[in-house]
Design a protein around this nucleic acid. Structure first.
Lengths: 211, 211
DNA sequence: GTCTATATTGAGATAGAC
DNA sequence: GTCTATCTCAATATAGAC
């Protein structure tokens, strides 16, 4: 006989997982401080002591959530090494992968962004900087490769890195504030290509160039 | 005889203004929900009823704060019309003005960003979208001028607009997360110039262009 | 206008039975 | 592991004197 007396329970998922899911949704929508443990357990369809049993307290479930997410992203950054193709293609592919991963985790990312760029909301400290720096390092490395292979102009490594990171960031923010615009991966690709037309060296003529 | 028994009072500013200042600082650093009215009045060096006298409640002081800020920004956008120079210069000047205004109001902007892109934190709704759209419209207009005057490529108006807005946004975010990097107005200008090298039409040779 | 004192609600967290 | 019942404290907000 299947136990299913609440919408949240209907899928028969373990309470611990239901709590993580409801906490993610609520923290993302209302913020860390504005979300109460009462709501979390209510949405998860369990009672309070269950939350305090699996996680030590409100900070505990937040930390668990965040660590799961940051690990996923770090793993993705570490995995990006064996890619082939021209520097430009590699950058496009890299940005696309990052963006796809972000779309899959848009809820948690909304929370991360608001805490990294905004007030901490009383949430326990998490070192988002190390991730940011890793991302930056990866992009910079890809840009330097492009320079080495003469595909990019030889100067302005920093500015190129920043322009690319900026495009990623902005596309994420459109997704956060206006997902209905359908900017998405295609939008990011278009903006990156626009930036490339400035980044790419102009030694030889490029195909498709007019006049 | 001057009354000055607290650091917050020492400048002899009216309680109403002191409350607005302390609320701005606290909302920006801790977030709307995590900031308590107790803290606000404590930092301002007044007692609770003073807050409830001047502003109706916690939401009231928040709304007052926000409306003051958004009015300032709207006014700046409206004021930007009588500028001269080439489209590129006008865009650079516009972005620089925006960025300067933002630096002057970085605290309130941190709060705005976290609420616009992130969870609402239980704060009352404010229509940030109308400002975002106005900003977008202004930039798009400047881009279209550049196209009309043949200074920019004739296609990709949207992408150009987005690339420019992205650069502004990103420079703000660096200011929010890493002000010590000293990215600032110069950084924004450099990145914009990098993007321009892709936006500028390539009909004729530009001065300073090599090879 | 500004204070002291207090009402009231809701938050995080736990004791202890099952 | 999960529940009911409850503790404790801090939050928003106000009454009423000055």
């Amino acid at each position: 006989m299947i136990k299913a007396d609440s919408a949240a329970k209907s899928l028969n998922i373990a309470p611990r997982e239901r709590l993580l899911a409801s906490a993610t949704e609520l923290f993302s929508r209302k913020g860390y401080s504005a979300t109460t443990t009462r709501e979390i357990v209510a949405v998860a369809g369990v009672t309070k002591p269950v939350l305090y049993y699996y996680f030590r307290n409100k900070e505990g479930i937040y930390l668990e959530l965040m660590h799961k997410a940051t690990n996923k992203f770090e793993a993705m950054l570490d995995a990006f090494h064996a890619e082939t193709g021209t520097p430009k293609k590699r950058i496009l592919s890299f940005c696309d992968q990052i963006f796809a991963l972000i779309l899959e985790n848009i809820e948690i990312l909304r929370l991360v962004y608001s805490i990294y760029y905004g007030p901490h909301q009383g949430a326990p400290f998490i070192d988002f900087d190390s991730f940011e720096l890793k991302l930056q390092k990866t992009v910079k490395h890809l840009v330097q490769e492009g320079i080495k292979k003469k595909e990019f102009q030889k100067e302005y490594v920093e500015d190129m890195t920043w322009a690319i990171l900026g495009a990623i960031n902005f596309s994420i923010e459109i997704e956060l504030s206006h997902p209905e615009w359908g900017f998405g991966r295609k939008g990011l690709k278009r903006v990156l290509n626009l930036i490339f037309r400035g980044i790419l060296a102009r030694d030889g003529k490029k195909k498709g160039e007019r006049k």
